[in-house]
């Protein structure tokens, strides 16, 4: 199946430099999950063409990009929800669609953007459903299932809520319950589609801290789509910036996130400084120019305050 997969330490095999547009995947890191020149389309509307992405093992990979750049679509393809029109998504060297559904679900977990909690279900019961791919008609609830569900609830801080109904919880608590369910699946790869959407800022940080902790302590490979570039720069070990269905840059945030890149990807003038808390890049949008000055400067964005574009860490 896969060639000798040397145990590469997390993110120690950092790449030499951020990649230029749309080149083929790097070979310096191993990747269990890759997209090989995929074309992604909904109802014939092409979102991305000839897109290649590799998720480095043991990384916390974050995909960023403006709305409609195809980041969620890419995540759907990586999690086999969307079948590529051409090209292939490979898991351990074989097309992901060629595995039985339950087998994939034991290797790769996904936290979708929208999930429905069935009426009247308790937290513990919902988290227990994460064990489904490990169960069968005659093996419905083993001691191992029970232990893992308890551990997953403890890891996400929802153990105290075990007997509460999911409908009664706050948004932040609910999202942690869903993450606990995805954890109970015990997959080495976990994909998260905008896990912080609809959450208050403190819950956003809570969820992202939890993800970082899972990545660090359990050594799982995480792939998340995030809206907030600063969150991405702070938490990711590997960043993939998309625009119009193409990879504009990828690599460690410290190397990738520059004012020049942010303007190229998001069309936002900004300054990149060091995050005083973590030392990771922090994007500060440029101030609005006064009307009078703007009149003079129309059409020449180069005249705008140009911040230092050098890597900051």
């Amino acid at each position: 199946m896969s060639d000798a997969r040397v145990a590469t330490g997390p993110q120690t095999t950092a790449k030499a430099a951020p990649r230029a547009d749309g080149e083929a995947g790097s070979t310096t890191t191993t990747s269990r999950l890759t997209a090989e020149s995929v074309t992604l389309a909904y109802d014939g509307r092409v979102i991305a063409e000839n897109l290649s992405v590799a998720v480095p093992d043991n990384s916390f990979t974050v995909i960023v990009g403006p709305n409609a750049c195809g980041k969620s679509t890419l995540l759907r393809a990586l999690s086999r929800m969307l079948k590529p029109a051409s090209g292939a998504v490979l898991l351990d060297g074989a097309a992901i669609g060629s595995y039985p559904a339950k087998k994939v679900a034991r290797t790769l977990g996904l936290l979708p953007q929208s999930s429905v909690a069935p009426d009247g279900i308790t937290v513990a019961d919902l988290v227990a459903r994460g064990r489904y791919p490990h169960q069968g008609l005659l093996r419905q609830w083993s001691p191992e299932d029970e232990r893992i569900v308890d551990e997953s609830m403890a890891a996400t801080g929802v153990a105290a809520l075990a007997d509460r109904y999911v409908d009664e919880l706050s948004g932040g608590q609910r999202q942690r319950v869903w993450i606990a369910m995805a954890l109970a699946q015990r997959t080495p790869l976990l994909l998260l589609d905008e896990p912080t959407t609809y959450l208050d800022i403190q819950h956003q940080i809570e969820v992202l801290d939890l993800c970082a902790e899972l990545h660090e302590t359990q050594g799982r490979t995480l792939v998340a789509v995030l809206h907030d570039l600063n969150h991405a720069a702070r938490y990711a070990t590997h960043l993939i910036a998309l625009r119009d269905g193409r990879v504009v840059a990828e690599g460690p945030p410290a190397e990738v996130v520059t004012a020049e890149l942010v303007e190229r990807v998001f069309g936002l003038r900004c300054q990149v400084i060091d995050d005083p808390q973590t030392g990771t890049p922090l994007v500060v949008p440029a101030a609005r120019r006064p009307r009078t000055a703007q009149a003079g400067a129309t059409g020449s964005p180069a005249a705008a305050a140009r911040p230092a574009g050098s890597p900051s860490a």
């Binding site: 929800m81 679900a105 996904l110 069935p118 008609l137």
Partner: peptide, 23 residues
């Protein structure tokens, strides 16, 4: 009845069920 467990998983939404390996 043999599909009961899969049906139960479907109630959490298609995406979640699919992610958990339900066809």
């Amino acid at each position: 009845l043999g599909h009961g467990r899969a049906l139960r998983m479907l109630e959490s939404g298609d995406d979640t069920a699919y992610a958990l390996g339900v066809p």
